[in-house]
Amino acid sequence: MAQIDDFLWTYQNLLASLGVNGLLALSMYVVLAIGQLSLGQAAFMGLGAYASALLTLKLDAPFPAVIAASMLVPAAVALVIGAPTLRLSGVYLALATVSLGEILRVVLVESDLTGGALGLSGIPEKAGLPLIFACLALALVAFTLICRSRIGRAMEAIREDEIAASASGIDLPAYKMAALVASAMLAGLAGALNAHISSFISPNEYGFDAAVTILSFALLGGIGSPFGPVIGAFILTLLPELLRPLHDYRLVVNGLIIVFAVLFMPHGLLVWPIGRIGAKA
């Protein structure tokens, strides 16, 4: 028993990263699943992390309320970003979410409330491994159910051909907005969990590199089913730990994964057909 405790203590942060990155990969998945691209996942995560950490540190708010806020704040921002851009072609959403990341960084660095470049430290460790993995499991179950439902089929139709989907009566703007908001909420949740297990957050953790890393999780796993991105996140989180030399070239590898995934395996490097089983039934 002591040995298990020791193991869990030693690798607590790594295990927590698996869960958090799994959630982030899922948040990317929702957007990709309807054929959109958001480069603001890191920013949504940062919003959730800072909102939750501030509530905990300054107001000593109860943890469930903190978690709720960490999802509502990014959701509100997603509405503001999505409203003008989702009417336009997908490129606009991608570029607008990049801007979101930059603006957030300026605000975080500048505001005294958020501790500026020094970030926020001394965040109590309120999110344990059980909570993190319960959230991940819950999200996975929810997405698997959605995938098999009418909504899932509509999302697939939008991804394959927007015009045809629209012609067959699917409410495009509603679906896109719902996906973006859900995605922002998941990323915010991941941010809050991460902040409440690693005790310290700073603006630089939520930059462009982080956004692209989250994209590489999802593309490695593929968006055929919600399990793909989570497995992708697990692999890309564990690999640099197992192969230390790889650590230096982490971003090089992530970049290559994205290129190969898009060019040669649009359904993901890992073939994981579970979501599709029964979907057509």
């Binding site: 203590w9 030693t10 942060n13 990263s17 690693s198 230390r244 650590h247």
Partner: peptide, 20 residues
């Protein structure tokens, strides 16, 4: 233990040095 400048790596490193 190397951190590569990352917070997560630094935490992993500290936990391993202390417990292992």
């Amino acid at each position: 233990e190397d951190t590569g400048g990352s917070k997560e790596q630094a935490i992993n490193a500290a936990r391993q040095l202390i417990a292992r």
